[in-house]
Amino acid sequence: MTADYDVWYEKASAVARDFPARGQALQIIAIRTDDFLAWLEEQGGTNDASNRLRYVKMRAAAAAQTVGELAQAVNTAVALIALRAGVIEDERRPLDMQN
């Protein structure tokens, strides 16, 4: 590892540790170099801080959408299981509003 990377890593780690202390959520996005460089080529961009930030924001938004879709699917599955078990009467209503 280079000294530059070590310095960056220490600073990034310190920032990541501070997020929960401030009551903020932290989303870690893994970036594959080949994917990023291919995206850069498609965009006609240069490998600079601005484009790296754009790429990370794009990946974060896509990850958040995937997590949201997964959560919705899980909630639907739980509601259907509860409906079939006779625990609730209508899968379209939240469980806390069934009574």
Results as ranks from 00 to 15, higher is better:
A30Q: 11
E91Y: 14
G45R: 01
S13A: 11
A25I: 01
A30V: 08
Y55I: 03
N47Y: 04
D18F: 07
R93L: 04
N51H: 05
D6G: 06
Y5W: 14
I31L: 09
G86R: 07
Q24Y: 10
A16R: 11
N47Q: 11
A62M: 12
I31S: 04
Q43T: 00
L83I: 04
A25L: 07
A3W: 05
G44A: 06
Y5K: 15
D90R: 13
R92L: 10
I81H: 07
D90H: 12
I29Q: 11
L70F: 05
A16T: 05
E69W: 01
Y5A: 12
A77T: 12
G68R: 04
T2N: 09
V7G: 07
N99M: 13
D4K: 05
A64R: 14
E10Y: 06
L40I: 04
A30N: 12
A71D: 06
Q24P: 04
T46L: 11
L26M: 06
L70E: 08
G86I: 05
E41H: 08
A16F: 04
A77D: 11
A30T: 11
D34F: 08
D35S: 15
M58I: 04
I88P: 05
A62C: 08
E89G: 14
T2L: 08
Q24E: 14
E10H: 13
D35V: 13
D48P: 01
